[in-house]
Amino acid sequence: MKEVTPFHIAIPVYNLAECREFYRDVLNCEEGRSSDHWVDFNLFGHQLVIHYKPKLKNEVTHRNPVDGHNVPVPHYGVVLPWDTFQKFAKELKSKGIKFVIEPYIRFEGQVGEQATMFFLDPAGNALEFKAFKDIEQLFAK
């Protein structure tokens, strides 16, 4: 497997203060640079930037069926090491996170078997975190 290069993602939030607190205090992301319209975070070694954007009326999250669950689209997240995922899921449960899809094993016994979980940030952005016992399965067909 190739060396992983950190990615950068910018997401819109209509409630900068509430989302800042969520990413910093609930997800334990280290805060970086910021202004009154955006905040940088370290999300498991990747740069996540939340940018203020006014809320649009009637925004609806689309969902696609995957392995018997309705996956929110769009979504973003990080592929974590197996043990890190388990610890992170446990921490989120202890903090009372309301999951869209509770942590479970997707595609169990099949190519691409993985642990996954989905939840929303305070602005309604969908996050997925996943892990593979065998990271070589990440792009397996």
Rank of each mutant, 00 (worst) to 15 (best):
T5G: 00
P6L: 05
P6N: 12
F7P: 00
H8K: 06
H8Q: 08
V13P: 00
Y14E: 03
N15P: 00
A17W: 01
C19A: 15
Y23G: 08
D25G: 05
L27A: 07
L27H: 06
C29M: 12
E31V: 12
R33A: 15
R33N: 14
R33F: 10
S34I: 01
S35Q: 07
D36H: 12
D36P: 00
W38L: 10
W38D: 14
W38K: 03
W38S: 13
V39M: 07
L43I: 02
L43S: 05
L43V: 03
F44A: 13
L48N: 03
V49M: 13
I50P: 00
I50R: 02
H51R: 10
K55T: 00
N58W: 13
N58Q: 12
R63G: 00
N64F: 09
D67Y: 11
G68T: 10
H69T: 06
H69G: 00
N70L: 15
P72A: 03
P74W: 11
V78L: 02
V78Y: 04
V79D: 09
L80H: 06
W82C: 00
K90G: 08
E91Y: 04
K93P: 00
I97D: 04
F99K: 06
V100K: 09
V100C: 02
E102M: 09
E102T: 11
P103V: 09
R106K: 09
G109H: 11
E113F: 04
F118K: 01
L120Y: 12
L120S: 06
G124W: 08
K130I: 01
K130A: 06
K130S: 13
K130Q: 13
K130T: 01
D134F: 12
E136Y: 07
L138N: 09
F139C: 08
F139M: 08
A140L: 01
A140N: 06
